[in-house]
Design a protein around this nucleic acid. Sequence first.
DNA 1: GTTCTTGCAAAGGCTTTGCAGTTCT
DNA 2: AGAACTGCAAAGCCTTTGCAAGAAC
Lengths: 150, 150
Amino acid sequence: MIIVINMPRKTPPHKKVCDCQGSRRSRRREAILDVLSSGEGHLSAEQVHKAAQKRMPGIGIATVYRALKCLCGCGKVLEFIPSDGVARYEPGGDKPHHDHLICTACGCFTEAVDPEIERLQARLAAKHGYAISGHRLEIYGLCPCCAKKK
Amino acid sequence: MIIVINMPRKTPPHKKVCDCQGSRRSRRREAILDVLSSGEGHLSAEQVHKAAQKRMPGIGIATVYRALKCLCGCGKVLEFIPSDGVARYEPGGDKPHHDHLICTACGCFTEAVDPEIERLQARLAAKHGYAISGHRLEIYGLCPCCAKKK
DNA sequence: GTTCTTGCAAAGGCTTTGCAGTTCT
DNA sequence: AGAACTGCAAAGCCTTTGCAAGAAC
C-alpha cells in the first residue's frame, strides 16, 4: 500500500511537532478532531477554524494550525495540498489511501482510487530508479453536477 | 492527450493576464524565456529571478512573476505547483505532457510519463462521472543518486 | 510543579498589485 | 501618442512563531 507523502513544507524539522506532543486531552483538539470526523472532509484550515468556533467559541486560528500539525503527526488527520497551495485536511488513520477528483467549477473533492494506477505508478518509479515512498494524484474536471448545468 | 491544469490560484480572473499582452518584444521577457529554455527546468520564481539577473542586471522579481504569468498564458511556459506550494516553471508548448518524480532527499525533479496511467486516469474520472480536463501526478521517493548514498 | 496548550499579535515566505516612470509600436 | 512593460515598495494570503497566561498531568 502506498502512503501519500507531501513535500516538506517550510516547517523546519528541528522543532518537533508531534513525537510525544499532542497527547494531552484538550477540548479544542477534541473539537477540531470532531469537526473533521463529522464534517465533509477536505476542509481548509480556515474552514476547520470556523467550524471549530461553533463548538469552542474563542478558539484561535493558531491553535487550529498547531492542532492540525499534531494530529497529522499522529496520523489522526491527513493533510493534502492541492495545486492552489492551500492545505486541506481530512480524518485519517483508518481511512484507506485515495486520490482526488477535483471539480474545476465548484471546487468540490471526490475521493477515488484505482489499484491498477497504484501499481503502474510503482512500476513507473522503479523504471526510473526511484525508491517510491508516496504519491499524489489529482484529476481535474467537471463533476457530474456541474457538467449537467452546462 | 491530457493537459495538466492547475487549480485556480488566488489571481482573480477579472484582470486579464495574457490575452493580447506579453506580445511586445522585451529584453527581460526574452531573458526569462531564455533562462527556462536553456536551464534545467523546474525552477522556482526565485531561481528564475536569480538566473535572469545574470543576463539582465536589475530585473525585479515582480517583472519575473508578471512575465511568467504571461508566458504561461501564452503556453510558452508551464507552471506546476507541487505540494510544497511553491510554483515551479518549465519551458512549455512543444514539450509533451509528463508527470514528475520528486526526490524527497535532494528535491530534484525527474520527468516521466506512462501512457497506461493516463488512460486509466481517464477511466477513473469517467467512472465517477467527471469530465476530465487535466491531472497532476507526483511520485515521491528517493532518486537513484540519493538511494545509493544511504 | 513541570510540561503542554492556548490566544494574541507579530513575523515569515511566496505572490500580487498600485503607481509613476520607461519602453515599445 | 497610446498601450504595454518595468522597478519599487506596499500589501495580500496562508502559515508559523514568540510570549505570557492558562490547563493538564
